[in-house]
């Protein structure tokens, strides 16, 4: 009898691991009051870079979006770029042209030739937008969430379309850290569960028993209370949100002898160690995931 009970319990546990995940589970909707169209000016000058605080200078001013690019923003781009013929839809993928990288034949280096590459998939159930054959639209509730499931090519193309570009790793780091000190997180030295969206933070968008973690709206961690959930202000010194957690952010550097592109910031699925400002992640430029997004930089408007 006892053996049967244990066997049944074990079987139930194993079966529960095969339970399908409802990717369309109800999403809470919150207005954060943070405008994704806002840019922050990062002045030229020195700052402490990396884990060991090496002094580095960026000798020009630049502006960076204070939030990740949202699904609404990206969908608007997709519709505009599709209309202007800059995108192609092939095999359930939105693709676009890339001029290719110089190939040096290093070990494990994969050649990125000129050609069309995936921007976003259309058949991925984790995508936060829809395509009805002619128009792209946002899945309800995701309007102010960061755009995810977007490849490096797709992120770069968005920025270029509006005469912006992806930040270099150094630009990203300076924007996250500021010039005052060698802080590990955009807001300071310590991290609390309700200061950023990372693994098991128990935010209103997370249910670890079923679908796991989900993105939070951009700028969600701004000190406001949402339906009883009190956040701490996670803004950087320059007023940027989500520079730690929520989604990994593609950066623009193309390094010699490797095809990988680098991401910064950590995501909803990261432990806090990957939210430290110097933590890096990388992937092939065609990689996309529900935990990867981006933001852009631009030259300051005169």
């Amino acid at each position: 009898m006892q053996r049967t009970v244990w066997t049944l319990l074990l079987l139930a546990a194993l079966l529960s691991s095969c339970a399908p995940v409802n990717l369309n589970a109800t999403l809470p909707v919150f207005e954060t009051g943070v405008d994704p169209e806002t840019w922050a000016l990062i002045p030229a000058g020195e700052f402490l870079s990396g884990q060991f605080n090496h002094q580095v200078a960026i000798d020009y001013d630049y502006e960076i979006m204070i939030t990740d690019v949202t699904v609404t923003q990206y969908v608007a781009y997709l519709n505009a770029a599709l209309a202007s013929g800059e995108l192609e839809i092939v095999d359930d993928k939105v693709t676009g042209y890339y001029t290719g990288d110089e190939f040096r034949g290093a070990r494990h280096e994969v050649e990125i030739t000129a050609g069309n590459y995936i921007y976003v998939p259309l058949d991925d159930p984790a995508s936060t937008f829809r395509y009805d054959g002619s128009i792209f639209s946002v899945k309800s509730g995701y309007e102010n969430h960061p755009m995810t499931n977007v490849s490096w090519f797709g992120a770069r193309a968005y920025c270029l379309y509006y005469d912006y570009r992806l930040p270099t790793e150094l630009e990203w780091e300076k924007a996250a850290r500021g010039s005052e000190d060698g802080r590990p997180f955009p807001w300071g030295d310590e991290i609390a569960r309700n200061q950023a969206n990372f693994y098991t933070t128990r935010d209103p968008f997370e249910d670890m028993a079923t679908f796991g973690s989900r993105t939070t709206p951009v700028g969600f961690y701004n000190g406001l209370t949402y339906d009883g959930y009190q956040t701490l202000d996670g803004a950087s010194l320059y007023g940027l949100y989500d520079m730690a957690g929520n989604v990994w952010q593609w950066t623009g550097d193309v390094y010699e002898r490797m095809h990988y592109r680098f991401m910064r910031g950590g995501s909803k699925d990261s432990y806090e160690m990957d939210l430290r400002i110097w933590a890096r992640n990388n992937a092939t430029p065609t990689y996309y995931s529900p935990g990867v997004g981006f933001r852009c930089v631009r030259t300051p408007l005169k």
Binding site: S16, S17, C18, V21, A126, D269
Partner: peptide, 15 residues
Amino acid sequence: ISEAEQQPLVNTIIY
């Protein structure tokens, strides 16, 4: 398993 659909499996594995 995909990243978006992994949580129930991950839970069992973690247990």
